[in-house]
Amino acid sequence: MNYNWNWHIFFEQNPTGAGTYLDMLVAGLLLTIKTALLAWVIALIFGTIVGILRSLPSKTASWIGFGYVEFFRNMPLLVQLFLWFFVLPELLPRAAGLWMKQLPNAPFWTAAIGVGLFMSARVAVQLAAGIASLPRGQKQAATALGLTTGQGYRYVLLPIAFRIILPPLTSEFLNTIKNTSVAITIGLIELTGQARAMQEFSFQVFEAFTAATVMYLAINIIVVTGMRFLERSLAIPGYIAGK
């Protein structure tokens, strides 16, 4: 293989003139983190609401939850982002569509919301499974004490269910971070986008993507470690994950 390795490339001036190639990658990393965090917050909020809907005895509620989950999990993420970014503005009334297209940072908001909703379907399924895994008597005990359905979820069912699903939720958080790289297709220059740009300008493809890989790995290790701490601090003595 005829390839000129050049690890010093990171400290060379990038073509925009503003800083080095490393600065480019770091800017991409920060955008990846920002997008992923917002997407994860959206995934947790919508996932929780839909997960609760799916666990309610009401037929209407569980049908709504079912429809939501199947809509968002059965379509490729890439297709969903295209739908939100290219198709939705055309379907809306002209003025609204124009407003959307001219929105500053449109790729960022579309990516965060698109990835967030896609992931929320997965969070919803896990939460519903977590709630279903609780003994039926827990809900009955909460009800018998006079707690309303909302209070029962808030104070009894959700705190236990979330503890149970914390390990798989960690995986979903990691998936959220990785999935933000799909947003490169709608013009979001996050970490993968910056690595590609660096490669195009410098022809140092291996260095660029090695750095991107290391950066993804680093955020994910931080997330995994953080979630382990969270799991430990929330562990219940003698119960799930407790020693």
């Binding site: 003994p135 009800t143 018998a144 004490l145």
Partner: peptide
């Protein structure tokens, strides 16, 4: 019903204490 249930105590076969 929540108000009425709050006035009647209930004890279950499997205790159903809140584990967390």
């Amino acid at each position: 019903l929540p108000k009425l249930r709050a006035r009647v105590g209930m004890v279950f076969q499997h205790f159903e204490l809140f584990p967390h």
